[in-house]
Design a protein around this nucleic acid. Structure first.
Lengths: 213, 213
DNA sequence: TGATGTGAATAACTTCACAGCG
DNA sequence: CGCTGTGAAGTTATTCACATCA
């Protein structure tokens, strides 16, 4: 089944993630079966693309009935790698960093914040939920020792580049960058995703403007 | 020039937003001209698509030289509607909501949080930076009175649907939904964008897995 | 009958490659 | 000469539409 997975683009993965939310919601309401058309209305997609996405990974429904929700959840979680806990660290324990650690959705998705790092000596040693804050100086040692592959970056924009360049590509494989500095999708073999809250506002503001005019 | 703007897709707008960050960064370093190939390396894109994106909006550079940074910034800000301040409200003054209000990037982008709303009586009346927290009961009155068009939603997932359904489409035109509940891209003529932090982790985790295997 | 699964058609997006101009 | 601007080509993604099967 694994060989279905070559050449999957990011948009497909993003949709799978949406399906998962939708499925968990349906499950929480006691449903056990779901039609592609149900998922489609919830996610604002055509039902055919949902079936195609799933078929691509060797997931098939029952003709005339739909998909088994439990099975579908399990399969998608496996594809996304959510079946095993992933350790991540957070750099920058400010407001946004703190909020992210406390964000329930991430915990549900099986990501575990094993440490946070910050330069502010008032914060060092403190806890955010169950995550301890360490000095930035200890960052690279910690990453090496604990084989951390994913880093979330919530430092002030002025520090972004310096920190990114200091990360050892031998260990770090992915960065989620929440600062306002745009980074390329890949650097030193590290995958980078930029999440820019301002951009999201700009997009919705443009969509609205376009629609109204 | 405005008639260049029909049929622009969201990905183009997202790129424009990236260009803007990149341009502001270049400007802050004292640059006055920029080549499409400079933007392209920073954003991880091909230079031709940048030129095409800009040409689409009637923005042209100088052959052999590049683009004038100041002009380009002004044009893109105009396209994205960032030239005038937009008033927005936040519903749910928890960790994430607080972090978003304090997030510098959003302030820079000319969005102004005129009020926050929360059910927690301990929070009501308090301030987050310059934004006052009100009771949820006053939400719809406030929106009506102040003609609020954009709402950011950072409440617990269990409250999402109830609140979304309560918003009056006569005034609210866009919702940025930070909860883990997937909402369709449009509902009662209100544009909705879902921002799911867990999804971003899932995507990067998948990309890494795919690359490594 | 009522859903899926999927080839074929269509649409959207990106890249190439090079003419053109300051 | 070094860049832009842009048709044409290539690629990827989505939708249609219908055969299929429990």
């Amino acid at each position: 089944m694994e060989n279905f997975q070559d050449k999957i683009s990011e948009v497909v993965i993003r949709r799978l993630s949406d399906y998962l939310r939708c499925l968990n919601y349906a499950k929480s309401k006691g449903q056990t079966l779901i039609k592609s058309s149900d998922i489609s209305t919830e996610c604002g997609l055509k039902s055919s693309i949902i079936r195609k996405d799933l078929a691509r990974f060797g997931i098939f429904g029952m003709k005339g009935k739909g998909y088994n929700i439990d099975e579908l959840i399990k399969e998608i979680e496996k594809i996304l790698g959510l079946n095993k806990t992933k350790n991540v660290v957070l750099i920058g324990a400010g407001n946004l960093g703190t909020a992210i650690i406390k964000y329930q959705g991430i915990k549900n998705a099986n990501f575990n914040f094993v440490a946070a790092f910050d330069n502010n000596s008032d914060k060092i040693g403190k806890m955010i939920d169950n995550t301890k804050i360490y000095s930035n100086e200890r960052l690279n040692g910690f990453i090496k020792k604990n084989r951390i592959e994913i880093v979330l970056l919530t430092v002030p924009s002025s520090e972004t580049i310096k920190i990114v360049d200091s990360l050892d590509p031998k260990f770090v494989k992915g960065i989620l960058n929440f600062t306002s500095v745009i980074l390329p999708p890949e650097k030193n073999n590290i995958f980078i995703h930029n999440i820019d809250l301002a951009k999201e506002l700009e997009v919705i503001s443009y969509c609205m403007k376009k629609c109204l005019s």
